[in-house]
Design a protein around this nucleic acid. Structure first.
Length: 301
DNA sequence: GTCCATGTTCTTTA
DNA sequence: CTAAAGAACATGGA
């Protein structure tokens, strides 16, 4: 479930708790969710020694890059947590039993930064669970540069830069917006919602967009993401905040998973098509596919 | 049994 | 070479 708003919500929930905490125990139950340097798991590479790398380290910051939760450690290493489709990161004090759920692949035990004041109630567990196992825990060593095949953050991207990046691809607009190298953090839900707000058809050829249209689109993306963050993301099925709560933004969707139901703007039924292998929802009336003005010679009169 | 799912990467094809 | 389309990954719910 995790697109940018869900990941941002996780980060905001964890930020008050994690900085300054020391990892006292590491329980890596499935090594295939851990990798080093990049997202991919190479089958031949030696597995990352997450236990050795993490135990004893203190967490400095919790931030977000695209759809990744970024934990920085006191030795300069970073841990990127990507939730995939069904990943959940849960924070729980020790008095609630550590997550007995299936599919818990990593369990970190955290103690307070100052051992002299160690109280049992200060101990907490951070667990990563992910039934489908599309998620990853990526370890970046202190000397490893940030892997960056990732495009710019939508919330800080400028209209000019967005226009330049977007209009040089000929793929359908929706496919372009899902490309994390072009713009990082959008997924299937928020692309559909942003396109509806911008009143643009998912199949629009990006080169046909004017500067005004790309500016409107960027504003729609930023508005949609900001509102979704305010509601702590969308819970369709699996997504939970680190406290176990559901997000609330699914109540505000205009098109996603609303095919057949009336458009909130014009009452026409929302349509669903398949585009780039992904289900795609839009309003045929609010988001007409602007026919590129055909370049035909004026008829002689 | 079938189809579908909030994501990314790899392979194939043009 | 690039770009686009499709498959693969793994699990569970309707």
């Amino acid at each position: 479930m995790p697109e940018l708003p869900e990941v941002e919500s996780v980060v905001r929930a964890l930020a008050p708790h994690l900085p300054g905490r020391t990892i006292t125990a590491v329980d890596l139950r499935r090594t295939d969710i851990a990798c080093e340097g990049r997202f991919r798991r190479s089958k031949s590479a030696t597995p990352v020694d997450l236990v050795g790398r993490l135990r004893g380290r203190t967490l400095l910051t919790v931030t977000r890059r695209a759809k990744r939760i970024v934990l920085t450690l006191d030795d300069g290493a970073r841990l990127h947590i990507h939730l995939g489709m069904t990943g959940v990161l849960t924070y729980a004090p020790a008095d609630t039993p550590p997550n007995p759920a299936k599919h818990t692949h990593l369990l970190l035990t955290l103690s307070p930064p100052t051992p002299p004041s160690l109280r049992i109630s200060d101990i907490a567990h951070l667990t990563f669970q992910d039934p489908r196992r599309f998620g990853r825990v990526i370890y970046l060593s202190p000397t490893c540069p940030d892997d960056d095949d990732l495009g710019p953050e939508p919330l800080t991207l400028t209209p000019d830069a967005f226009h330049a990046r977007l209009t040089r691809t000929k793929r359908p607009l929706k496919s372009a917006l899902l490309d994390q190298r072009l713009i990082a953090g959008l997924g299937n839900i928020y692309v559909d919602e942003s396109l509806h707000r911008a009143r643009l058809h998912p199949l629009t050829p990006p080169p046909s967009l004017t500067e005004g249209q790309t500016k409107t689109l960027l504003e729609s993306i930023q508005h949609t993401l900001t509102q979704a963050i305010a509601h702590r993301g969308s819970t369709l099925r699996d997504y939970r905040t680190p406290d176990g709560d559901e997000g609330g933004y699914q109540q505000h969707h205009h098109v996603y998973a609303r095919d057949g139901r009336p458009c909130r703007s014009c009452d026409k039924p929302i349509e669903r098509i398949t585009l780039g292998g992904r289900s795609t929802h839009f309003c045929p009336k609010c988001q007409p596919l602007a026919r590129r003005p055909r370049n035909r010679t004026p008829k002689r009169k």
